[in-house]
Computed example of a mutant assay.
Amino acid sequence: MVEFSLLTGLAIGPTVGLLATLAMDLVMARLPEGETPPKVAASVLTGESVDTAPARLATWIHYVAGAGSGLLFVGIAAALGSALDGAVVTLTTASVVQLALMIGFFAFVPLPRATGVPRGRRARVRRAWAIEATAYVLVAALAVAAVGRVV
């Protein structure tokens, strides 16, 4: 089962998120548009083109969003854990929900609002984000499973 107290979940979530974000960084470095998604967020916040968006802001957004997504993932897993039977089913379902939220949010909120991303490039950026988000969710699920056995 995936059962955490509120306090434990608040502590574990951002840690899981940062670990998953670090794993995501390895995938980002290997993809042609892999470094673009954090720049998309920086572009939306600053109004600058994706290619000239502040790298420091993009990095900050990337890690803060990663920690927050970890908190969301742990919350989803804990909520589903009370309704579903077994850690594997719970974490698999939480992973599908989290992945859909991550890809859907990125594709429909910041990406269309970013400056300097033509339609053809948007498809490549969405594809890169989907691969990166999958890596994130996989690591987050494994981390929650490992912590769930310890806690």
Rank of each mutant, 00 (worst) to 15 (best):
E3K: 12
F4W: 07
G9F: 08
G9T: 06
L10D: 09
A11T: 01
G13I: 05
G13Y: 01
P14Q: 07
V16L: 10
V16F: 10
L22H: 03
M24K: 14
M24D: 08
L26T: 12
V27L: 14
M28K: 08
M28I: 00
A29L: 11
L31V: 09
L31N: 08
P32K: 12
P32F: 06
P32S: 11
E33R: 10
E33V: 00
E33A: 12
G34T: 09
E35G: 14
P37W: 03
P37R: 05
P38H: 04
P38L: 05
K39Q: 15
V40E: 08
V40P: 10
A41F: 14
S43H: 10
S43L: 11
V50F: 09
V50I: 12
D51W: 08
D51K: 10
A53H: 11
A55F: 01
R56V: 13
L57H: 02
H62E: 09
H62R: 13
G66A: 03
A67P: 05
A67W: 04
S69Q: 07
G70Q: 11
G70C: 10
L71H: 02
L72D: 03
L72N: 03
F73R: 00
V74Y: 07
A77Q: 02
A77Y: 13
A79P: 01
S82Q: 13
S82A: 10
S82W: 10
A83W: 15
L84V: 01
G86H: 08
A87P: 01
T90M: 05
T93C: 04
L99M: 04
L101T: 11
A107V: 13
F108S: 14
F108M: 14
V109H: 05
P110Q: 06
L111R: 04
L111T: 07
R113L: 13
A114C: 07
A114G: 02
G116V: 11
P118A: 10
R119A: 15
R119P: 05
R119F: 01
R119D: 11
G120I: 02
G120M: 00
R121G: 04
V125A: 06
R127T: 12
R127L: 13
A128T: 06
A128Q: 01
I131V: 15
A133I: 00
A133W: 00
T134V: 01
A135N: 03
V137G: 05
L138H: 03
L138P: 00
V139G: 05
V139D: 03
A140Y: 08
A140P: 03
A140I: 05
A143C: 08
V144W: 06
A146Q: 03
V150A: 12
